[in-house]
Simulated assay, not measured.
Amino acid sequence: MVERVQRVPLADQAAGLLLDRIRGGEWRLGAKLPGETTLAPQLGVGRSTVREAIRQLSGRGVLTTRQGSGVFVAALDAPEDRVMLMSRASIITVIEARIAVETETASLAAARRTPAHLRAIRQALVAREGAVATASEHVDADLDFHRAVVVAAGNDILTDLFDLSTPRMREAMVDMLAIRGEYGGVADHDAHAALVDAVADRSPDDAARASRAHLSALKEALA
């Protein structure tokens, strides 16, 4: 019988349960995990929580996401040193790493994106615009949007680097937006829409410029 998540934080517990099942041999190295719709009821959480748990384990090197194929087991245990390194990192350091990764992935996404990638990015932008009920909801939608762009770059290593930074980034952004009390404004949406337009137009330089400008502004806000 599959153990269910009972206490918060749900994403952390869901990640722990998935890792326990991997360690226990339920999925071998290289095996494909069931989809979100299967895992969510098994863990007793929503699909967004499953996505966050998968992000965490991807960042820890346990899982890897292959665009169009699914999520696969990349390691049978978690190397804790990567997690500890990220948890100790200052938020500015994390944003600087994101600037390096996402400026390049935005450029690659503009050059390599498929129609399916572009649909996913546009859907994520619409979802981001509507996710304003709470700071945590907005941050999750924001990270989903940025990950959709990263995935469109077609580089699994860059996707893993993005996933590694996600838990630390999410924590800092939720705290910042909760204190600020406002998010998801017109200017913020337009900055993200500019990135989408550049990817849609297959303009690598414009995409890289839009990504760098947005993340640099975020760095200044969090400094």
Rank of each mutant, 00 (worst) to 15 (best):
V2A: 08
E3Q: 13
Q6R: 14
A11G: 09
L17T: 04
L19G: 02
D20W: 11
R21A: 02
G25I: 08
G30K: 06
G35F: 07
E36N: 09
T37Q: 12
S48V: 10
V50C: 05
G59P: 07
V62D: 00
T64G: 13
S69H: 15
G70D: 05
A78I: 03
P79C: 13
M84C: 09
M84W: 15
I95R: 00
V101N: 11
T105G: 04
L108C: 05
L108Y: 04
P115M: 00
A116L: 12
R119T: 07
I121A: 05
I121C: 03
R122E: 06
V126F: 10
G130H: 09
A131I: 05
E137I: 06
H138A: 03
V139Q: 02
V139W: 04
A141F: 02
D142M: 12
D142V: 08
D142S: 13
F145Q: 05
G154P: 10
G154E: 03
N155V: 12
D156C: 06
I157T: 15
L158Q: 07
L158D: 09
T159S: 11
F162D: 07
R168C: 11
R168Q: 11
R170L: 13
M173F: 11
M173D: 08
V174I: 10
D175M: 15
M176C: 07
L177W: 08
E182H: 14
V186M: 11
H192N: 03
A193Q: 05
A194F: 11
A207Y: 00
A208I: 02
R209M: 13
A210C: 04
R212E: 07
A213K: 14
A217D: 11
L218Q: 09
K219R: 15
E220Q: 15
A221D: 14
L222T: 02
